[in-house]
Amino acid sequence: MTNATPPPLRARSAERTGNAPASFGGIDKSATRRSTAAPDFTVIQRSEEFTRLRRRVRWFVFPMTILFLAWYIGYVLLAAYAHDFMAEPVVGKVNVGLLLGVLQFVTTVVITTIYVRFANRRIDPYADEIRQNVEDTEQ
């Protein structure tokens, strides 16, 4: 059994006919693993570095989730129990309820953008470092 991914159908048919498949983007290597042994995920999970990484993720995710759920549940409660407030016109036929409903989508995009920036700066470099340490110890 091999660790390589099976080639696409065209490549398999090209192998049968004797025509070598063209490399795409100059990539000629197969997707083989560097070693046959799988990483010891239990050791990685118990490591101090991984614990710090999880703490960083939780530092952002839990408060942001609570904030967004409070905002969303507040909107639902206002829609259910504050009909007069939600029907209050803001501009023309646009009322408070419609404006708050659109702001739900805007909030989702803003939170996603903030998370991507946070992950790029604070999570991904640290995860890459952990991955590199694991790969170095495997070799």
Rank of each mutant, 00 (worst) to 15 (best):
Asn133Phe: 00
Trp59Ser: 11
Val109Trp: 08
Asn95Cys: 02
Thr108Val: 14
Arg56Met: 02
Ala31Ile: 13
His83Cys: 06
Leu67Tyr: 10
Arg52Ser: 08
Phe41Ala: 05
Thr17His: 10
Arg34Cys: 12
Ala22Ile: 02
Gly25Tyr: 04
Arg56Lys: 15
Asn19Lys: 10
Ala22His: 01
Asp124Cys: 00
Gly92Tyr: 09
Gly26Gln: 03
Gln104Asn: 02
Val76Asp: 02
Arg10Pro: 00
Leu103His: 04
Val96Ser: 01
Ala38Leu: 10
Gln45Val: 00
Leu67Thr: 07
Lys29Ile: 04
Val90Lys: 08
Val106Ile: 15
Tyr115Phe: 15
Val134Cys: 06
Val110Asn: 00
Glu88Lys: 08
Leu78Gly: 14
Lys29Ala: 13
His83Glu: 14
Pro63Gln: 08
Gln45Pro: 00
Ile111Glu: 04
Met64Asn: 05
Val116Gly: 03
Asn19Tyr: 05
Ala119Asp: 05
Ile111Val: 15
Arg121Gln: 07
Tyr81Met: 05
Val116Arg: 06
Glu48Gly: 03
Ala14Gln: 09
Arg131Tyr: 03
Val109His: 04
Ala38Pro: 01
Val94Lys: 10
Glu15Val: 11
Glu49Trp: 01
Ala82Trp: 04
Glu135Trp: 11
Gly18Ile: 04
Pro6Lys: 05
Ile44Ser: 07
Pro6Ala: 15
Met86Tyr: 07
Val106Met: 09
Gln139Asp: 12
Thr113Glu: 07
Ile44Pro: 11
Phe85Cys: 01
Leu9Asn: 02
Thr2Cys: 13
Leu67Trp: 06
Phe41Leu: 13
Ala14Glu: 11
Thr112Tyr: 11
Val94Pro: 06
Thr32Phe: 10
Gly74Val: 00
Ala22Phe: 11
Phe105Lys: 01
Glu49His: 12
Ala22Glu: 14
Ala79Met: 06
Thr108Ala: 12
Arg122Ile: 06
Tyr126Ile: 04
Thr113Val: 14
Phe62Arg: 15
Glu49Pro: 04
Leu67Val: 12
Lys93Pro: 09
Ala80His: 12
Met86Gln: 06
Asp28His: 13
Pro39Val: 04
Val57Thr: 04
Arg10Phe: 07
Phe24Asn: 09
Ala127Asn: 12
Ile130Ala: 10
Thr2Arg: 14
Asn95Trp: 06
Val116Gln: 08
Met64Cys: 10
Asn3Ser: 15
Arg54Glu: 14
Thr36Gln: 12
Ile123Tyr: 00
Arg54Ile: 09
Pro7Ala: 14
Asn3Ala: 13
Phe24His: 06
Phe60Arg: 06
Ile123Phe: 01
Asp136Arg: 11
Pro63Trp: 02
Thr5Ala: 07
Arg55Tyr: 08
Arg117Met: 10
Asp136Ser: 13
Pro63Asp: 08
Ala14Val: 00
Pro21Glu: 02
Thr42Ser: 09
Gly97His: 07
Leu67Gln: 01
Leu9Gly: 09
Ala38Thr: 03
Pro8Tyr: 05
Arg33Thr: 14
Leu77Thr: 11
Leu77Val: 13
Pro39Cys: 05
Asn120Gly: 00
Arg117Val: 05
Ser13Gln: 13
Pro6Ile: 01
Ile130Met: 03
Ala119Gln: 06
Pro8Gly: 05
Val106Arg: 03
Pro89Glu: 12
Trp71Ser: 01
Ala4Tyr: 05
Gly101Ile: 00
Ala20Val: 08
Asn120Leu: 12
Arg34Ala: 15
Gln139Thr: 10
Glu138Thr: 04
Pro21Thr: 03
Val90Trp: 13
Val106Ser: 02
